[in-house]
Design a protein around this nucleic acid. Structure first.
Lengths: 346, 346
DNA sequence: TGAGAGAATGAACGCGTGTACATTTTATGT
DNA sequence: ACATAAAATGTACACGCGTTCATTCTCTCA
């Protein structure tokens, strides 16, 4: 493997000059540049990335932390895929590498160590939860002013850098659309409350109800874990309420679809017997029967933005706290428009 | 940031000894080890990963190359997610990092450069296609005996390292199951033939037909691009044949589901009017109505195996060509079992 | 108690690059 | 032609670690 010394010798210049050519630094005679480039090409020389990282004291990699579940593989959702693509697109555009880090639930979270070992210059944390240990780990990151960014998760009381979407508004729009159709009793199938976005959706649900003068009834709030199966399982409990109520809002599309299936096995069909709205606008939502009303979340853009912000933190050193919320869009499809409304309303 | 020198000074030993402690090398007095570890802890010392890579001459990272499409984001399929998870699980188990590399279609493929720059010690290539330039790039990798592994793609005439699944058998099983039910005219909605696994499936389809003494009819073979939409669009052409035929085999679940939706808009329902089989056993296949018959592919295992093999190539230097094929399993669900069979058969 | 062997530790260098500083070359104006 | 500044290039070292080889220490046995 050819190195700088070889190129310098072949081109008849010093190593520093080779370095200058490859980094476009300082005044250089055009003729010298050509000599060096030719020599480099002849030797098939490429600067050694590790040595560069070493000399520069930075890895040029961004770590992306993804939760890893052995059974319920969240990666199979379009959620992480979209975020990852957004992040990857922006990073490679700006010459950074993407180090994918699966976080096993058992091992202790030590984000700071990633920086100590210089494996990454910054990190983006996906799917973090409000569980013991997490806040402390993040706080340490923040206190040390290390470049990081959370995605779709906030922690009340802690001014962590984060990119999220306006899930309160999303739920509000979704639930309001049901209310406007005349529904007063609306079931909400929420995700785990360790995710702040679950809490945001709950707030949106409550807000919509209160706005409409409908009292908040905790009996109508169910909880799943965002998996297809949990939606399917929730069908049992929800079915018993269906004669009374016929509007459901689910925290994501997967639960909504699982629920749809579970309810159909009990004889209830979406858009015929009850109105249903999902969340995320995953690809599949548009082709269920009936097509699923949902809320579009700009995941790709969020990923891009998070990457951008982390790189800004890296280049600008410190910075005011990042806290951006991207807008979401309610998408009305057939599932939330009951063909025979009011028939079972109280 | 503390370094080895600081630890050595505080512990009152030489730098070499610190190194020995952290690498568990050579005979060490227990007492010395403790001193060093305490000093390290006190200074919050962690060996610098970049410097280690530099000194050892290897990055300790494996590059995973993933195709990147701006519009049709393949990452949103469970296909890449499962593979990635498998790879990630195995790599982190063995102490390697996963560098995710999105391959833009425009830029020239130069896998070798990744090694020249020392960014990775090996690479795993997902979703490569048989297009001009690809074979040459791979051949160069192979000639230079660099550690790499293809997943789910082979190139006839080239003994590239690869891990795949037995898609010929998968299709054979699927199509045979239709034949055994009495269907003689079976439509095959294939994916792009630049993927060797598409070709394998076609062979499986043909083999099953020939085995049953049914002549191969190219009129019954359609082509999509593995996207939901392409399945949906294929519905038009296929619908015109449905009065005559009523069994369809699709190259993946997404196309099958798109097709199902498209055909339902024309009044045809799976399992009532036609039998349908998909491929991949993606999560969604089990909850469509009717549940989709499909072929399970052990993607997670394939990812793990590919990672294992690349690491073997790294540690053992050269090696005989890797060419493993994992078995697949046909999963029969309602969609392929016509409720009123033979009614429209010729 | 002293020699010898083996255990334990230290000293020194290389890995390939970035870069501050020193030096040489070239251009400019007289 | 010469002084001067600016442009172009060279020299030398640092970065943090792995590792080889040399050195010191410790223990055993006579």
């Amino acid at each position: 493997m050819a190195n700088r010394k070889d190129v310098a010798k072949l081109a008849g210049v010093s190593e520093a000059t080779v370095s200058r050519v490859f980094n476009n630094i300082g005044p250089l005679r055009q003729e010298t540049k050509q000599k060096v480039l030719q020599a480099a090409q002849h030797l098939n020389y490429h600067p050694n990335a590790i040595a560069q990282s070493f000399a520069r004291g930075k890895s040029n990699n961004i770590g992306v932390i993804v939760p890893y579940f052995q059974k319920v593989n969240l990666m199979s959702t379009h959620y992480f895929s979209e975020l990852l693509s957004g992040i990857g697109a922006k990073l490679s555009e700006l010459g950074y590498g993407l180090l994918l880090l699966y976080q096993s639930p058992d091992e202790s979270k030590d984000y700071v160590k990633l920086f100590h070992t210089q494996k990454v210059d910054g990190c983006i944390i996906l799917g973090s939860k409000d569980v013991p240990g997490e806040v402390e780990a993040l706080d340490k990151l923040h206190q040390l002013q290390l470049p990081y960014c959370l995605v779709n998760q906030t922690f009340s009381g802690y001014p962590f850098h984060s990119i999220s979407a306006d899930h309160l508004d999303g739920s509000l729009q979704a639930v309001s659309s049901l209310i406007m159709q005349g529904y007063k009793k609306i079931i909400f199938l929420n995700g785990p409350t360790e995710f702040s976005n679950s809490i945001d959706r709950l707030k949106g649900y409550e807000t919509a109800m209160i706005k409409a003068g409908i009292p908040y009834n905790p009996k109508f709030v169910f909880q799943g874990n965002y998996s297809l199966k949990s939606g399917y399982l929730a069908a049992r409990g929800i079915a018993s309420l269906l004669p009374e109520i016929n509007a459901i809002f689910a925290g994501n599309d997967r639960m909504a679809i699982g629920l749809m299936q579970g309810l159909s096995e009990q004889g209830y069909q979406a858009s015929r017997d009850y109105a249903l709205i999902g969340y995320d606008d995953s690809e599949i939502s548009s082709i269920t029967s009936p097509p699923l009303s949902t809320v579009h979340v700009p995941l790709f853009d969020m990923g891009q933005l998070a990457a951008e912000k982390v790189l800004q933190l890296i280049s600008q050193g410190t910075m005011t706290v990042i806290k951006e919320q991207l807008p979401v869009t309610f998408i009305e499809r057939a599932s939330s428009q009951l063909r025979t409304p009011y028939t079972k309303q109280s």
